[in-house]
Design a protein around this nucleic acid. Structure first.
Length: 561
RNA sequence: GGGGGAUUGGUCUAACGGUAGGACGACUGACUCUGGAUCAGUUUGUGGAGGUUCAAAUCCUUCAUCCCCUGCCA
């Protein structure tokens, strides 16, 4: 088992040093700051879990704060889905749910302060002009002609910007920092832009909206955040973050002293993570929606059957680094297998049924056999499973012409039926037209009953089965990776990641034969289908008597198929 | 001839000048009424070149490679 608490990383080190130095009075307070403009994926789950774990392991607090400073892109729908995802992951923000828009007024007041201090000015440059003035990566920028406006004029113009006197894009408020800085983010960054747009929370109260670099540190400051974690690409923005915090603390003392620390994003092999690519998959209909179980979205993983604890374990296994990493899918799968191996009840389900008749078993007789619910969990007890003359076994558990090292049923061969008897296959019945095998005629060894005195006879193979008259029907959805390539984005020249879509990422099996007890499977419950894998009773499809299982992950299989 | 970050086996990660370790994967074997699980074992690594030092993944120099930055996005 992974010891999540003990997981060591460079951010833990920073926090320990900060506590030892008495910084922020030893408090630890983190936050997760999503923009409500899309769905969360497993990379976000890593960030959520990291922030939450860091806070909890130091007796600290964790906030959820929506970064909603761009009314053109953000919607309530995403707020709802993100809240549901974060809650499901187990990160508890208690009563600290915030929005960047909660602080629009304070942000405005700091802007006024900056203008008064000669640290910000209203610029009339167009977007194109501003771009031209900014310079390039290798050449310094040049100062805007509006940079030297008087404080009075700036104050007046900024107030009129707020009042809505100017059209979109006509002016911005800019910080007066250094147009010659080698760091482009410090070349008089825009603080406010004009957007006459409806905001999902503030409605039409504002027509100027703060930029991320200006807004974010203020939110951290006001919420007393101590450790503001973000992804690597913001490292260049840190001087600006510090600049804003510095002036905020001068204008409005008594806030916290947040410190930004960057860490690498986590991606997964055999899938894509970018918002744009996920959107394409959904919009072009390659998946059924944002919660399609093949997607790496939190909603998709939840629908697939993954558990919050498995995602927490995965997050801890990722480690924390100053570089972006791509985790192997196998690690994620390991996390859910490890958990479900210990907790999931075992059950017999025949996915591709083959009828088998025991010729020497009395017709009409039924035996209720005791089968263990989970050999890994002695507390789980036994259940009774009906056995009769006619049963189903898995088609692939019989080979008329066995390949080498095949351990299961062949003509004249024997196999153990799990929890029942050893049987021998006498002959095969085929469809006279298609030559397909329709039925196996077998005999059983009455002395070999499981748990009985003669049951010790060694048989190399064991098959799972379901009694034909007692079987229930179910639909089973076998999910596989959405892409057949470990790095689908690593498309060869000219290639597109869509070229690597796996045509077999979803195989729907109907007419599967399962233990009758499964018709009462609670939606949302998880089972191990013996020898098949771990399955999830899909809550969204379980309605009106239908029984639908999603394959979360297969069992490891060292038998090369 | 811009700035920032990074480089440890297939993947992820630890080692903070002192035995390169762990996880996942892969491969063997044992065991098994799940070809699962479990157990035992094997395999593969400090990007290159110099230097400092008794001792370098770690410090210095240099080269190489990769990622990010020229939104009124976040």
């Amino acid at each position: 088992m992974v010891n999540i608490e003990a997981a060591n990383n460079f951010i833990q080190d920073i926090i320990k040093e900060d506590i030892a130095a008495g910084k922020n009075d030893g408090r630890v307070h983190t936050r997760f700051p999503p923009e409500p403009n899309g769905w969360l994926h497993i990379g976000h789950a890593f960030a959520v879990n990291l922030n939450y774990r860091l806070a909890m392991s130091h007796g600290g607090k964790f906030n959820l704060r929506f970064d909603d400073t761009n009314p053109l892109k953000e919607e309530q729908e995403y707020v709802d889905s993100i809240m549901a995802d974060v809650k499901w992951l187990g990160a508890d923000w208690e009563d600290r749910l915030f929005f960047a828009s909660d602080y629009f007024e304070q942000k405005y007041r700091l802007a006024v302060y900056l203008i008064e201090q000669g640290l910000a000015y209203v610029d009339d440059l167009s977007a194109d002009e501003m771009r031209a003035y900014r310079g390039t990566l290798t050449e310094p920028g040049k100062e805007s002609p509006y940079r030297t406006r008087s404080v009075g004029e700036n104050l007046d113009l900024f107030a009129r910007m707020r009042r809505g006197e100017f059209p979109d894009g006509s002016r911005t408020l800019r910080a007066k920092i250094d147009m010659h800085s080698p760091n482009l983010n410090m070349r008089d960054p825009a603080l406010y832009r004009i957007r006459h747009a409806h905001h999902h929370r503030t409605g039409n109260a504002w027509c100027i909206y703060p930029m991320y670099d200006y807004s974010h540190p203020i939110g951290d400051y006001l919420e007393n955040i101590t450790h503001s974690l973000c992804s690597l690409e913001y490292a260049d923005h840190r001087p600006l973050y510090d600049w804003v915090v510095e002036h905020m603390s001068r204008a409005f003392p008594a806030g916290g002293r947040p410190q930004q620390t960057e860490f690498g994003r986590v991606s997964l092999s055999y899938t894509v993570m970018s918002k744009r690519k996920l959107r394409r998959l959904v919009e072009e209909g390659h998946v059924a929606g944002w919660d399609d179980p093949r997607l790496p979205t939190i909603a998709g993983l939840r629908r697939r059957g993954y558990t919050p604890s498995a995602l927490r374990t995965f997050s801890a296994l990722c480690g924390v680094a100053r570089k972006n990493v791509t985790m192997e899918l196998a690690v994620l799968e390991h996390c859910i297998r490890e958990e479900l191996n210990a907790t999931a009840p075992r059950v017999m389900a025949v996915l591709r049924p083959l009828k088998l008749v025991l010729e020497n078993y009395p017709a009409g007789q039924v035996e209720w056999l005791e089968v263990e619910n989970n050999p890994e969990d002695q507390q789980s007890g036994m259940r009774l499973v009906p056995f009769s003359r006619e049963i189903y076994i898995e088609q692939e558990d019989f080979m008329e012409v066995p390949v080498k090292k095949f351990h299961r049923l062949t003509v004249g061969g024997e196999v153990r039926l799990k929890g029942a008897y050893i049987i021998r296959c006498e002959r095969v019945v085929k469809d006279p037209d298609t030559r397909e095998i329709t039925e196996l005629r077998c005999t059983y060894d009455p002395e070999s009953k499981s748990g009985g005195p003669q049951s010790g006879r060694k048989i190399k193979g064991t098959s799972h089965w379901v009694s034909l008259p007692h079987a229930a029907e179910a639909e089973v959805r076998l999910y596989d990776t959405l892409f057949s390539k470990a790095e689908p984005e690593d498309a060869a020249e000219g290639g597109d990641f869509m070229a690597h879509l796996n045509p077999d990422s979803l195989v729907v099996l109907t007419g599967c034969k399962v233990e009758a007890s499964l018709t009462r499977a609670l939606p949302g419950s998880r089972y191990q289908f013996l020898r098949q894998g771990y399955f999830y009773a899909d809550p969204q499809s379980q309605a009106n008597g239908r029984t639908v299982f999603n394959r979360i992950v297969g069992l490891k299989d060292t038998w090369a198929r």
